[in-house]
Design a binder for these strands. Structure first.
Lengths: 218, 218
DNA sequence: TTCAATCTGTTGCAATTGCAACACACTAAG
DNA sequence: CTTAGTGTGTTGCAATTGCAACAGATTGAA
């Protein structure tokens, strides 16, 4: 759990040889930091000239409104990026809060070094830019998936859409959610007790089965 | 209404001189097409190696599920891009349908020419790549905004969040929505009649006022 | 203009959801 | 081990929403 992902397995670095990667990390000002569970990584309104890569643990993207309601917009796990949507903007200011969901290690890279062509004309710069385009597209698509889940007319529809999405990602009937019940309710924007009520009802009707964080659609 | 946006006002082309733009459009295989209201531009599962730029009219991004329910995921208007999230992927396949919401003119550009460095080493290639990064970030953020709107606990909250978002975009108290009532209900994923009921109630309570497609929060 | 098709607002009723309160797990710190 | 704090499942009740049916308004084509 505490083990970091190997750099060669990070999607942003795909297609870059290990020797070049060492040079790259030097060329792109990069640094590492660790966060405790619950610690804030980036606060709403913060300037974010850096792209974060989760080396271990996971990061939650949260939005708090004026009335104190908190929403879990999305979450990222090992190897994935966060803050990149803001970092690639002209004025890189975050409109959300990023928080460590567990003990988390993060590698930060200066976004400007990826967006702008390198003065040294590193051969691998083109590769990382291309990977970055890919990942920005992928991130948008994952947001679209969440919109699709939330667009379901009732709690049952949302749960089924969420579990189906996980099944597709995990390529298995048996899926594991990284979210607690309370967090899942916050993620789907439904009342927690109404959600557990619906889960029980769906199990009684034989539509799904679950044990703790593992779900199956039958 | 039928007039096309000028190329120099398209965000993707920002910072590129008009002479260079002519060369660019030649370098990047580009072509124009027109669509009738309601016509499908890109169907789910279609390959989309092209980025679309709306020159006039507007485009709706739709998702249809197995049971025939349709959701309006997002919409883009003059000068904005669509399909770019899929086009920048390694396997550029759309997971949604794009449809002309009115009579619409579209300029298509080959995404590969933007993502990969140009063989001719056009000086303005770096500029368009940078603009593309910006716009991909912006698109992600607009999806996050929609998630935030949909995360509101009831119809009233969703409507207020939507109108507030428009007010921020249009920098005015008086906002105009490009969506019909039926479309707005589909966009917010709520029942149409329940939505008009809530709108009336909010007007009665003096919270908002509206006339046709114009809204004010009081 | 005329007419059909679609959009819009309204309302009563049924279903779903949120709320609040509670008991019982589980977790982490002392 | 003990204990406080937090997460989870349950339930009755109230509020919100969806559904269906309808009438009037609006739109677009002939």
């Amino acid at each position: 759990m505490e083990k970091e992902i190997e750099y060669k397995n990070i999607p942003l670095f795909e297609g870059i040889s290990e020797e070049n990667l060492t040079r790259l990390l030097y060329c792109i000002n990069s640094f590492k930091r660790e966060y405790e569970k619950g610690e804030t990584i980036i606060l709403e309104k913060d300037k974010v000239p850096y792209i974060g890569i989760v080396l271990s643990g996971s990061v939650h993207m949260l939005k708090n409104d004026i009335w104190g309601n908190s929403t879990l917009l999305s979450y990222v796990t090992e190897g994935e990026l966060f803050g990149e949507n803001f970092a690639v903007m002209k004025i890189p200011e975050s409109s959300v809060t990023f928080q460590a969901a567990s003990h988390t290690k993060v590698l930060f890279l200066a976004a400007s070094k990826i967006i702008h062509t390198c003065e040294n004309a590193c051969s691998f710069h083109a590769q990382i830019a291309e990977n970055m385009f890919n990942l920005l597209g992928r991130k948008s698509i994952s947001f679209m998936n969440k919109i699709e889940i939330m667009s379901k007319e009732n709690i049952r529809g949302k749960l089924l859409a969420y579990i189906s999405m996980l099944a597709q990602q995990q390529k298995s009937k048996y899926v594991i959610t990284p979210l607690s019940r309370t967090q899942l309710a916050e993620y789907l924007s439904v009342n927690r007790s109404a959600m557990t009520r619906e889960l029980s009802k769906m199990r009684d009707e034989g539509i799904i089965d679950f044990d703790r964080d593992t779900f199956v659609i039958k």
